[in-house]
Design a protein around this nucleic acid. Structure first.
Lengths: 149, 149
DNA sequence: GTCAATGCAAATCGTTTGCATGAAC
DNA sequence: GTTCATGCAAACGATTTGCATTGAC
């Protein structure tokens, strides 16, 4: 069984446990994020779904509702990049931060254990119980630097 | 001369140098951020100005235009907190990051040199020329933790 | 059959723009 | 007097909501 199927099963379980209904639309939206392996805006998810499943006739409002729901139950995460507005990604991957090119919008993911450790220490020092964090480095990637010459 | 006056002078200088006009409105907006010593949304700046200077009759569009301008000339900075949308703060203070309480919205500022250094290293490794970064830790502050009991 | 979820269109929110007027230089 | 900045209202894009209908259980 591939990993994305496991996530779908997880969704089924959550929905059942909450006494809600399992719908094709929620599955489609989650699936889109699982396979896009990128960071998508609500609109991008909507368009992707429209092309991949032209028969499904899903509405933009449903996409928004599904995204909120999936974030609420922790299957996906949203990040507010300064550019392009709010984006979503599946929680399948491990936690990571982002390097964002302000030229072409390219996003590089990275993780640094030392930074993570220091973040925890800072939170502890301030008596915060940290739930999440978000870190973005903005800059110009190599390709865009060269293009500027 | 207090520090906020120096910033106002800086604004005058920039405006003159660019051949633009020095207006009361731009000064009022900058002043609001200088004295608020917090992080304000455009709307909050607008309301603050409205109450502090009921005679000034400033429009919300002007507030937005002033904020963009001030950010462009580096007198203020905007940050996209996941909560409450885009907020602005004056650049008088040194660079810092934010600890945000998701309970009460309290914001604690902090700076960690080691994290800054590692960020630079990560950027270099990925051949990015970093222009700025933004880092937020979300959590629950001590007061809110206690209130939950 | 019941109740939650959907699709659609209208409403709302934050932000931007066009344009005639007013203020800085 | 020229040009930029303003105020207002209209426009805009992203997101949310109300409501009648559909579909999961």
């Amino acid at each position: 069984m591939v990993k994305s199927d496991e996530v779908i099963d997880e969704l089924k379980k959550i929905v059942k446990q909450k006494g809600l209904k399992y719908t094709e639309q929620r599955e489609i939206v989650l699936n889109a994020l699982l396979h896009a392996d990128g960071h998508l805006t609500a609109e991008e998810v909507y368009n992707l779904v429209k092309t991949k499943r032209p028969d499904s006739n899903i509405g933009i409002a449903t996409v928004y509702r599904a995204l909120s729901f999936l974030e609420e139950v922790n299957l996906i995460t949203s990040i507010n990049f300064g550019i392009d507005g709010k984006k979503f990604e599946s929680n399948q991957k491990d936690h990571h931060d982002h390097l964002i090119c302000t030229g072409c919008g390219k996003i590089v993911e990275f993780i640094d254990d030392e930074i993570e450790k220091r973040q925890d220490r800072i939170a502890k020092k301030n008596k915060f119980k940290v739930t999440s964090h978000s870190m973005q480095l903005y800059g110009v990637c190599k390709t865009c630097q060269e293009a500027l010459n």
